[in-house]
């Protein structure tokens, strides 16, 4: 494949034909925020965080789906881009119920990390506080729609890596929702192979392994009592 040279944030770099702007940026140590991008599955250009400025077009283009071309001049960071990125994150926080303090992902959430790095010290939009439920019907996993940002990473891994086709998007606009099979409780899904790839893919606390959520940890006091009894009373049966 032919090599192409291009300029990214003023630095001349070369890359293979067919590469995306995002790949080239990452290969060259240029940091770009992303949410819907996930290594290993195809890109959909949905979150709009990786938008960059490209000389010669007034449109902002998503780095994850834009292929490089010879002589391209890319700007990945500007006041305008930062402003839009921060607004995007603020909109997400106002959209559903992201209560970090009680979230399974607190401290290792891509949304939270992005909010920090983009300097989101508060949300200027009114919180919408929609009513969403939590699906705990599955034996191993749970889905909290309050934390979902509709990045569709779970859908893509489910279809294109696992090949199960359990996860899907239903509805439109702000009422869009990740569903299992034909909008059934996840636990009733016949196609789910319980592989857990969607949980691995999720950037937030929307999908989680059961037993790891805040408040779910049970203090096994009986075990202490058992040990003490065994040691002091030589009593081995509970």
């Amino acid at each position: 494949m032919a090599a192409k040279t291009l300029i990214i944030d003023g630095k001349e770099v070369s890359a293979e034909e067919g590469a995306t702007v995002l790949q080239v940026a990452r290969d060259n140590g240029v940091k770009l925020p992303t949410l819907c991008h996930l290594e290993g599955v195809y890109d959909v250009g949905a979150c709009r965080l990786c938008l960059v400025e490209i000389a010669g077009t007034t449109k902002l283009l998503p780095a994850c789906t834009t292929k490089i071309s010879e002589g391209m001049r890319i700007t990945t960071d500007s006041d305008r881009l930062r402003k839009y990125r921060r607004m995007t994150i603020e909109l997400l926080f106002a959209e559903r119920n992201h209560v970090c303090a009680v979230c399974v992902s607190n401290g290792h959430c891509e949304l939270q990390t992005l909010a920090y790095s983009l300097g989101m010290d508060h949300v200027r939009y009114d919180y919408i506080f929609p009513k969403w439920n939590v699906d705990l019907t599955h034996r191993m996993f749970g889905m909290d729609h309050n934390r979902c940002i509709l990045c569709t990473r779970c859908v893509r891994v489910c279809w294109h890596i696992e090949g199960a086709g359990t996860k899907n998007v239903a509805g439109r606009g702000a009422t869009s929702k990740i569903i299992s099979d034909l909008n059934q409780p996840w636990g009733d899904s016949e196609s789910c192979t319980e592989c857990g790839k969607c949980v691995m893919a999720c950037p937030t606390g929307a999908l989680f392994n059961k037993g790891t959520t805040t408040g779910e940890m049970e203090h096994d006091r009986d075990k202490l009592e058992f040990i003490v009894n065994a040691r002091e009373k030589q009593q081995w049966l509970p």
Binding site: V44, G45, A46, C47, R48, T88, L91, L92, A94, E95, Y125, D126, I128, I149, L150, T152, V169, G171, R172, G173, A174, T175, S176
Partner: peptide, 17 residues
């Protein structure tokens, strides 16, 4: 807002705001 497909964040939640 009602007709937004919901795929991208600015349209889905920007129109709602």
């Amino acid at each position: 807002m009602e007709e937004s497909c919901g795929k991208c964040i600015p349209c889905r939640t920007g129109t709602a705001q």
